[in-house]
Amino acid sequence: MWIAVVTIAVIALIAGLALSFASRKLPSDPADLVEQINDLLPQTQCAQCGYAGCRPYAAAIANDHEAINLCPPGGDDTLRRLATLLGKDVIPLAEAPPEGHAVAVIDESLCIGCMHCRTACPVDAIVGAQQLMHTVIEQECTGCKLCIAPCPVDCISMRTV
């Protein structure tokens, strides 16, 4: 009987040790780091970094050593937090796009108040109500251009400030 008990115990012990070894020694979880970086990014999904959205950019930072200074909407704050998280030096933001810091501007004489751009704005920088014209809060706008495509009357343009 004791042989049986000891055998089972030894098999369980070996399985447990193998599992704990596997969970510790396998390459550390990249998903966790991607999550953490993703949490720091502004979630504007503006793609100005050259990736399809914030999460792909986070994955590129975590896995492919992409530069951390490609996020204009996040600005210096995000850059500093990313640098702290990853133990990198704070570097200036990558060159602003050629048009400088762009903001969206709504041509209020053309606006029909359809709300499409307000729904699309990731940072709630567009105010306005149904059937009333909308406008952009300049300080809040990150220049992500996501409001341009949904506008049915093409009254939104980008302007450098």
Partner: peptide, 12 residues
């Protein structure tokens, strides 16, 4: 044990 191992593997 192998299911647990698979779960760790898949997550990684």
């Amino acid at each position: 044990a192998s299911v647990q191992f698979t779960e760790i593997m898949v997550r990684r």
